[in-house]
Design a protein around this nucleic acid. Structure first.
Length: 428
RNA sequence: GGAGGCUUCGCCUAGUCCGGUCUAUGGCGCCGCACUGCUAAUGCGGUUUGGGUUUUGGCCCAUCCCGGGUUCAAAUCCCGGAGCCUCCGCCA
C-alpha cells in the first residue's frame, strides 16, 4: 500500500499516478475521506477511554457510600467506549479497503501509455540469421528428446510438459549457472516454499485485481506462488532489518504456478507460457533512497546472465498502464525468438519502493535509528522453461543440433552441442 | 491424526495460582553523562512499537502471540485460533 502521508500531503501526485495507470482517480478522494473519518473516530474513542480509565480508578478509591454512583458512571462510560471502538473498527476497515485499491505511485520517468507503449532502452547482440528453415523450440526439443508436451498434457492437462534427457539437464544447468552467478555477486541463495499463506500473497499485491492468475488450495487456505518473490518478500514480514551494510539480497529458487486465465489461445505451442515452471528470482531489501540504483543493478545482473547464454535481447521500459500493482517502475528484457521474428519477455525487474514492505511491515533503522519502511525490488534471473525455449531456437543449427553456450557446458557434461540421440554421458 | 508444554518492551527473565498505581521486574546488550593518564571497572540517566494531538515542550490512547468474551477494570479469568517444542502414530 502507498504511504498515507503522501496522499495527505500531495494528493495530486497520487491522482496523476492513478491517471497514468488508467485507474480510477476518485479513489484518491475516497481514501482521503476515509482517512479523515478514521482519525476522527480514533480521537473520539481515545478521549472516551481516557475518561473511562480515570472513572475506573475512582471505583477503586471510592468509599462504600459513594461507590454505587461512581460505579454507575463507570458502567455508562464503558458502554460508550464500546460503541466508539466499534465505530473505530468500522472506520479502520473502510480505510484499509480504500487504501488497498490504490496501486503504487508510478515513478516520474515511466513512459506514458499502455501495453504497446513500452520504450526500448537498448538492444544488445545481433539478431541472428539462418541459412536454413528455422524450427520452433518444440520441434527442436521434441526431436532432441528434451521436451514432451503430449505426455505432459496426458498427465496434467494443457500447458504442462515433461523435460526429459537433455531438457532435464538444461533445467539443472540453467539453475546452477544462475545460482552460481548470484552467489558470486553476493546474493544469499534460497530454496523457497512454493505454497504460501494469504498474508504473503496479499502483501506482495497478488490478490488484488489479478487474483484470477493464482492457484488456491482452498482446503488448507494456501496459495501456489506465481513467483518466489512472494515467499522471499514474506520471509522478513514484521521484522526490522539491519541494512547498515547495504541491501539484503536473495536469489530464490522455486517452482512457479500460473493459471494463465486470460491467455487462451496465446502461446499455446511449447513451453513459452505454461502453468508451472521453475525460476531463479533475485530479491532485494534496501533503504528507500537506494531503490533506484538497486533497480539498475538488478537489471545489469539480468543482462549479464543473458549475455552468458549468448542470447540477443533488448531492454524495455514498461509504460505506466502496464505496470503491476506493486511496481513503481519495471524493466523487461526481451530475447529474440527466431520463429516468431520478434523479441519476447524473458525476464522482468520491478522497483516496488515501499509498497510491499508497508503491507508486510518490513522496516530498517534510518541514520537516526528510527524505524523506516524499506524498499523491495525483484528481478528474474532465469525463468527456466522459457529460457530453454529461447536457447533451443536461437542456438539451433542446420543439422538439427543445438549449440551449447560455453557458460552452460560445465553443467552439461562438457558437451558443446546437443543432438538427437546423443549420449548424455559427460565427455572426458 | 493423538497427548502434553511453551509464547511478556533487541535477547534472557519476574509477574499469571488469588483481576486494580503492571504507568510491567531484573540481567545482558546498546546510547548519553560523570569518574579515570588510557583501557577496564564503577556510578547516574536513557533504551518496545504503532496511532492521535500538539503553542515542538509535551500530552493522550493502544500494545504482554492473535481474535472474541466476562468485568467499572484483564499480562492475569473464560472460549476460539496461530506458531514453536516434546512424546506417540504415519510417512519421503
Amino acid at each position: 500500500m502507498i504511504d498515507l502521508r503522501l496522499v495527505r500531503e500531495n494528493p495530486d501526485l497520487v491522482r496523476a499516478s492513478q491517471r497514468a495507470r488508467g485507474a480510477d482517480e476518485s479513489r484518491v478522494d475516497a481514501l482521503l475521506a476515509a482517512d479523515a473519518e478514521r482519525r476522527a473516530a480514533v480521537h473520539r474513542a481515545d478521549q472516551l477511554r481516557a475518561e473511562q480509565k480515570s472513572a475506573s480508578q475512582a471505583v477503586k478509591k471510592a468509599t462504600p457510600e459513594e461507590r454505587p454512583a461512581v460505579l454507575e458512571r463507570a458502567k455508562a462510560l464503558s458502554a460508550e467506549v464500546k460503541a466508539a471502538e466499534d465505530a473505530t473498527r468500522a472506520a479502520d476497515e473502510a480505510l484499509r479497503a480504500a487504501h488497498l485499491v490504490i496501486a503504487n505511485v508510478v515513478a516520474p520517468e515511466v513512459p506514458p501509455g499502455g501495453e504497446d507503449d513500452a520504450v526500448t532502452i537498448r538492444t544488445v547482440g545481433d539478431v541472428p540469421s539462418y541459412d536454413f528453415e528455422v524450427r520452433d523450440h518444440l520441434d527442436i526439443g521434441t526431436a532432441l528428446g528434451a521436451i514432451d508436451m503430449e505426455r505432459g498434457a496426458k498427465v496434467s492437462g494443457a500447458r504442462f510438459y515433461f523435460l526429459t534427457g537433455p531438457g532435464a539437464l538444461l533445467e539443472f544447468a540453467l539453475a546452477q549457472l544462475a545460482i552460481t552467478r548470484a552467489v558470486a555477486a553476493g546474493f544469499t541463495p534460497v530454496v523457497a516454499p512454493a505454497l504460501v499463506g494469504p498474508k504473503a500473497m496479499e502483501g506482495t499485491g497478488f490478490l488484488g485485481e489479478h487474483d484470477e492468475e493464482v492457484y488456491r488450495i482452498e482446503r488448507d487456505d494456501l496459495y501456489l506462488v506465481g513467483t518466489s518473490e512472494v515467499a522471499l518478500a514474506g520471509m522478513h514480514a514484521d521484522e526490522v532489518l539491519d541494512l547498515s551494510a547495504g541491501p539484503k539480497r536473495y536469489a530464490g529458487w522455486s517452482s512457479c504456478f500460473r493459471r494463465e486465465a486470460g491467455s487462451y489461445g496465446k502461446d499455446t505451442k511449447g513451453i513459452i507460457r505454461v502453468h508451472w515452471f521453475d525460476k531463479v528470482e533475485m530479491f532485494s531489501f534496501c533503504a528507500p533512497e537506494d531503490a533506484e540504483a538497486e533497480h539498475l543493478r538488478l537489471l545489469q545482473w539480468e543482462e549479464e546472465f543473458l549475455q552468458a547464454l549468448e542470447l540477443p535481447y533488448r531492454v524495455v521500459d514498461i509504460a505506466a498502464g502496464d505496470l503491476g500493482t506493486s511496481a513503481a517502475r519495471k524493466f523487461d528484457i526481451e530475447a529474440w525468438f527466431p520463429t516468431q521474428g520478434t523479441y519476447r519477455e524473458l525476464t522482468s525487474t520491478s522497483d516496488c519502493t515501499t509498497f510491499q514492505a508497508r503491507r508486510l511491515s518490513i522496516r530498517s533503522r534510518d541514520a537516526d535509528g528510527r524505524p523506516q519502511t524499506v524498499a523491495t525490488l525483484n528481478g528474474t534471473l532465469c525463468a527456466i522453461a522459457r529460457t530453454i525455449a529461447c536457447l533451443l531456437e536461437v542456438h539451433q543449427q542446420a543439422d538439427g543440433s543445438v549449440h551449447v553456450p560455453v557458460a552452460l557446458r560445465p553443467w552439461l557434461g562438457g558437451h558443446a552441442v546437443l543432438r538427437p540421440g546423443m549420449s548424455l554421458v559427460p565427455t572426458a
